[in-house]
Design a protein around this nucleic acid. Sequence first.
RNA 1: GUGGGUGUAGCGCAAUGGUUAGAGCGUCAGGCUGUGGACCUGGAGGUUGGGGGUUCGAAACCCCUCACCCACCCCA
Length: 421
Amino acid sequence: MEKIRTLRGFRDILGEDIEKFKRIESASRRYLDLLGFTEIEIPVLESTDLFARSIGDTTDIVEKEMFTFTDLGGDSVTLRPEATAGVVRAYLQSGLHAKERISKLFTIGPMFRHERPQKGRFREFHQVDVEVFGTDDPFIDAELLWMISLLLGDLGIKRYTMEVNSVGCKLCREEFRAVLVSYFETRQDRLCEDCLRRLHRNPLRIFDCKNRQCIEVSSESPLLFDYLCAGCSGHFQGFLAHMNDFGVPVTVNKRLVRGLDYYTKTVFEITSDELGAQKAFTAGGRYDNLVEEMGGPKTPAIGFAIGMERLALLAGNEEGPRKPVCFFAYLGEKAKAYLPLMAKDFIGQGMSLRYSYEGKSLKSQMRYADGLGADFVLILGDEEIERKVIIVRNMKEKDQFELPLDPPGLAAVLKERFRKE
RNA sequence: GUGGGUGUAGCGCAAUGGUUAGAGCGUCAGGCUGUGGACCUGGAGGUUGGGGGUUCGAAACCCCUCACCCACCCCA
């Protein structure tokens, strides 16, 4: 019979991987909590309309990368390809916009995109997603990047680049769009097929193209950055000044654009050259119009997402402080009868106790204990039961001693010994 | 969706077209009765991803297919 495997692009997370994920998660939670963010859990499955409307129905994500299907009730539903849309929906649905002036929210969980997998890219991947609603002050833009820099420092990640740019507001973008289209129209013969398609639908995306000719053409094109209105330009300068105040270096990349339609003003991407082709492991930006477009009141907002798989590729393995592990090795049925007593005693004291289920030879149990990395092995056989003692072997020191056989109290004695060490 | 690479034991790998596909790590059991790591001995574990073809003979060569990896596309 054929073995059943995970679907393409899906994977199990275990062993060292799950340890890294836990470290990323707890470090993220630590800084988010310090800066006043609260957690929100949102559904993995939402109505397809939610994503089509928020992300933009001409984006690649919506056009060809969503896990969309019709449910048994005949509705079109989609596994979330990103979190912002759902968080905005929840923000409005729960009435948070009316309850608090500023909302700082985060959510951690899986996202789904039907793409071809490669290094750092999976069909199911995990993000730490952070959103702030209710202010367009550039200080919050800077605060977010500062927080990310703290998190990365905490995880021991040093080699990365924070690229920032401003994509302006609706006004400057409209004006620039006309300039850009006419620039590329006179050079259509040098653009690739994809870019010709982008030309009228979403000309900004031509900057994203990696085709050599397109890069040449776009490298000489006018830049949105130079067409920012006074408001957007001032906002960006304020943001840069705050970054400077925080002492977090950023690189202005005037060609940086984003693949989702809702972004305005500040956008950023954090990259590492250790990641292969998918080098951005965190990205985000401001979206001052999205809440309103989703049917809410005019509410400026900004957010970002950390790709946990990609961040895990950068974070080294690190062993945290380990709690002592005891192992109970028993010989014979009489000794095995002590197993429940021992287990209750140790677990009741908050001490880890391991043991084999089959018993087997003492050698076998010792090997097992060693493989588990036990610090102490408690050995009990008929001889010890008769003498009312138990052998305690220190695996690191390779020596052993005896303690009175007294299960409801043994764990406390050993716990005290660990404390002294 | 398009390229390229790789599929052999649980894992990472070896095997000019030629006996019964191997060693290492891991696993299990022993090494004078009840003491771990090192060492020694032994055991278990394979449809060589699957299907077809060429051949006296295929893990190897050809075709198809599947899976994984990397890249394009796109993105966290």
